[in-house]
Design a binder for these strands. Sequence first.
DNA 1: CCAACATTTCAATACTCGTAGAAATATGGA
DNA 2: TCCATATTTCTACGAGTATTGAAATGTTGG
Lengths: 121, 121
Amino acid sequence: MERTDAVIALAALAQDSRLDTYRLLVAAGPEGMPAGEVAAALGLPPNTLSFHFDRLRQAGLVTVRRAGRSMIYAARFDTMNALLGFLTDNCCGGKPEKCLPSGAPGKRKPQGGKRREKADA
Amino acid sequence: MERTDAVIALAALAQDSRLDTYRLLVAAGPEGMPAGEVAAALGLPPNTLSFHFDRLRQAGLVTVRRAGRSMIYAARFDTMNALLGFLTDNCCGGKPEKCLPSGAPGKRKPQGGKRREKADA
DNA sequence: CCAACATTTCAATACTCGTAGAAATATGGA
DNA sequence: TCCATATTTCTACGAGTATTGAAATGTTGG
């Protein structure tokens, strides 16, 4: 993945409705789910959702296939993984043990802390 | 990490200059590097860079400390890891083996394919 | 205290994004 | 063919973003 692709993918995910949509698809798994079902779940008008789906699709984060009258959207896990890889790439000049707690991202679940705003400066 | 925090972090990274800046800091490791050095490396005017640093800091992605006349910025790896965890969280309804190739993200390097635009629809 | 340095804050502008109403397209069935 | 369903395309508008020039703030050393 190149930087340009990463920026597009990040921008696609950096929006409330789209992040919700994407996470819904991620949770749905490779099977995906019809657009109407997503719209119902998130309470979005169909045209607005269509706009967001397009962004996600252009970013390579989802795929579409038609099933009868419905359009089935599904998350592209390969792109997701490429993006995660890009972000942690070259970490600490090639020494990830300095920054990635368990040596590599993944399987972390125990989040829950809350930091926010100028708490650090 | 909550959804709101994730959106802010993603938006902070979804911009060319900021993604470059952040990756530079990630590569620099926990030590961080002075603002002027980042400005020189990326060829950005100091006020523009300052604006971007602020976004990254508000997103919790970097920290600052003063060292003489310089401000030393450093990546916050805990936030990065929390974000990665949030994105892959609840993957496939709790069955990550369906979507994450090696069972968990991390250590993937062998990217290189290029997909783009309406190649999939 | 003053001058040089490093970075931030302020103000203004062009640009892109998110949203939704209305109309169009595609599919399935009577 | 005609109608209902599912989704997309067109159009327009308010809101937020990135950028830069100019001025301000904080820091070091003479």
